[in-house]
Design a protein around this nucleic acid. Structure first.
Lengths: 228, 228
DNA sequence: CCCACCGTTGGTACTGAGTACCGTCATTAC
DNA sequence: GTAATGACGGTACTCAGTACCAACGGTGGG
């Protein structure tokens, strides 16, 4: 029974020591000693000191990749939303562990950097997927839009995740769905080319019950494309 | 004359060795030896091995912070665009050095992570600035919008910067201005608070040679504050 | 029952980054 | 001339991470 426990005992010992003395003040020898194993065994289970805190990142990446891969052109945006929800649920499943990690990354700069780097990895997945989905990879503006969209998607996820980690969110799944809706609303279909006008604007008088923001796209389209 | 050269000689030696043997295969002793100084002197000039490649990040952060700080409420978006342009110009000024760094960060994972982490630092600056500018920090949706906008701004910058680094852009400054325009187009101005009035909008007729973006703030203020 | 073969473990030794400290030397100030 | 300052080099140390090896313990075949 002590066989499968070794890995977990190491993680427990690590988190306990990090809480007691802080991350930098804890050596791997300390962790191994408290877990009752040799130093070598530590590195057999975790590639580095940081990996005790961020395990199975690769699995998470694979989860995202898989969800994105199983989608057709028409369901691409659904796949993106699903993948984001998947990541969020992954953290929620971790529960207290995720919160302890958050406490650590908030304090230790090296860990924060590590976290950011791994977030960038799945932002890259989203970017490539969205870029492929948009097609027309020769178009420079499509490339930029894919980048912007991926950045927004990941930012939205992180925003909701952090709120939940801080205990500010009672229903993070609903929030992330709402946030994703907001993100996707930002990106309309293929943009019409700018610069087809004199730069001036003609605004006609009207009254509407719509919010200004809601009708801005139409306004803009009118200006850019002309009233043809 | 060999006095001020020490720091530069170290950087030259480092980059040369990184090119010859690769980053991980180069020890700090190697660098110090080729530069003709002691190992101690290396650490006196650079806090770490990575810092030879990413010097004066702090200065760049300070540059951004300063540009953002010297702006009023009305010129906030101009300040953001300026700050982004500032960062881009910083890299362009570095010229070949920036490209050599890019070649390294493309190959070495540790350096890529480091780069990403420092990008996150100025994304944070933008986020805080935009969040302050949007005001009403209690509103959850404003917070998300600030996060999305900061992410998009930084993504746009990175996109153009990487294009330039790869030699795909002849006029990166024009490109970043265009990209920033596209980003800001994505985001309609600060949401008018719901529940004030009936949510409808009254738009009066006028004609101007100003771009729509330029007069949007006035438009918005009229709507939000009323024509008092 | 013995032995050959595993996989897991712990120990030792090494490299290399980063830190702390100290003695030396040159420049400048007085 | 001398004292103070500051840049430099050297030594010694801690700690993360790697490589290697020797000692187990079980398992299966003979």
């Amino acid at each position: 029974m002590s066989k499968p426990a070794a890995r977990d005992r190491l993680a427990d010992a690590a988190f306990a020591l990090f809480d007691e003395r802080g991350y930098e003040q804890t050596t791997i020898d300390d962790i191994a000693e408290r877990a009752g194993v040799g130093r070598t065994t530590f590195f057999r289970h975790y590639r580095s000191k940081e990996e005790v805190i961020f395990p199975n990142h690769d699995r998470l990446l694979e989860l995202i990749r898989h969800r994105l891969a199983t989608s057709s052109h028409g369901t691409a945006l659904v796949a993106v939303s699903d993948a984001v929800r998947l990541v969020l649920l992954h953290y929620i499943d971790e529960g207290d562990l995720a919160r302890r990690r958050y406490a650590l990354t908030s304090k230790v700069a090296a860990l924060r950097d590590r976290e950011i780097a791994s977030v960038a990895r799945y932002q890259r997945l989203f970017r490539e997927f969205i870029s492929d989905w948009m097609g027309d990879p020769t178009t420079e503006s499509a490339s930029l839009r894919a980048e912007l969209m991926a950045a927004a998607v990941v930012a939205a996820h992180n925003h909701v995740l952090r709120r939940w980690l801080r205990g500010e969110s009672a229903d993070p799944v609903a929030e992330v769905d709402e946030a994703m809706r907001e993100v996707l609303d930002l990106f309309p279909g293929p943009r019409s080319r700018p610069g087809t006008g004199d730069g001036g604007s003609t605004v006609v008088a009207f009254r509407t019950r719509q919010d200004l923001d809601a009708l801005l796209p139409s306004l803009r389209r009118l200006i850019e494309e002309g009233p043809e």
